[in-house]
Design a protein around this nucleic acid. Structure first.
Length: 204
DNA sequence: CGTTGGATTGGCT
DNA sequence: GCCAATCCAACGC
């Protein structure tokens, strides 16, 4: 429906390379009636040796999935109430991932609205914790394989050309402000309201 | 052990 | 713009 699942090799590359290429791809959860799906419009890269990354101080019980095989989910719990979903990239033991910050809702908007407590399409999946709630992503999905086409998967969709991608500093990250690794579809109404310090385009 | 603060959000001033 | 909500990992003693 949205194409084939992205192959494992897609994720076996640096997070900063995978991140912008994830824009326009489709995140799908569930089958038929209860299916929810959305087009990725905003992501952030977190790499090995990155002071802002959960992997910075080495593997722990919490971030174990981040050091696992690429193409799997790393789900973490934060602020006592929110889950956020990442896609693991690079090699096993590396500790790099791409945070999914916003998607454009495509399917299952009524399910999303029920979980989120709002029907406003712009508020269903615009923000990492909102996205996770709309897709019912929690601890149970930590480590789930996005490639094998199970309950949750990441399919081809249509990549966004570099000319329509903007990059900014990462939202809510104080460390490493020089690493402008938030990538978003320029002008897209479904990006999160996070306010970056700077906005610059890639290639025009 | 006790403390601190976080890759956030929503509600209120 | 400010702040509470609410858990828990990381770190200091």
């Amino acid at each position: 429906m949205y194409g084939r699942p992205l192959p494992r090799s897609f994720f076996e590359r640096p997070a900063t390379v995978v991140a912008p290429e994830l824009l326009g791809r489709i995140l799908v959860r569930g089958r038929s009636e209860e299916r929810v799906a959305g087009r990725i419009v905003e992501v952030e890269a977190y790499t090995e040796g990155d002071p802002a990354s959960h992997s910075f101080s080495g593997p722990t019980a919490r971030n174990a999935a981040m050091f696992g095989p690429p193409g799997h989910l790393y789900v973490y719990f934060t602020y006592g109430m929110h889950f956020c979903a990442n896609v693991v990239t690079g090699g096993v033991g590396e500790g790099s991932a791409v945070l999914l910050r916003a998607v454009e809702p495509l399917e299952g908007l009524s399910s999303m609205a029920r979980r989120r407590g709002t029907r406003d399409p712009r508020r269903l999946c615009a923000g990492p914790a909102r996205l996770a709630e709309a897709f019912s992503i929690d601890r149970a999905l930590d480590g789930a394989d996005l490639v094998r086409g199970g309950d949750i998967r990441l399919v081809e969709g249509e990549p966004v050309p570099p000319s329509r991608i903007a990059r900014t500093t990462r939202v809510g990250v104080r460390a490493a402000p020089d690493r402008r690794w938030r990538f978003l579809v320029r002008g897209d109404p479904f990006v999160s309201p996070g306010r970056p310090a700077r906005v610059d385009g890639i290639r025009g």
